[in-house]
Amino acid sequence: MIEWFSWLQLAIAVPAGVLCVVLGLLGRKPTDLTMGATLLVELLLLAQLVVALVAPLVGNEATGSLLEFYTYLISAILLPVAAGFWALIERSRWSTVILGVACLSVAVMIYRMVQIWTVQGV
């Protein structure tokens, strides 16, 4: 896990989540903007997966439990996909809010992943 990349992910996932929640509560149906923001969060997660797989090969080992790390990462990868499909199937304002909830949940999980990777035993 590359630390600055994780912070970049957080810096995108949190505003994306807030944006979707706010627009959803304002009554907007899922749009290219909100779907795109969620897609971006998803793509960064996939990049994170590649980083996590490659990092140990170049001497950047996780200090905490890898099992826990990957449980978080895989769960996080599933969330925007599930929310995205939900938004495609049901085009209501609440689907937009749910996109936001997924992005914010991903943000919390990335934060936990950083802790697991960098701070032993947290």
């Binding site: 969330l79 599930a82 929310a83 209501s92 609440w94 689907s95 749910i98 909830v101 997924a102």
Partner: peptide, 10 residues
């Protein structure tokens, strides 16, 4: 209620 279900799912 959708939102409640989604949060429960998470």
């Amino acid at each position: 209620g959708r939102l409640l279900i989604a949060v429960y799912g998470v």
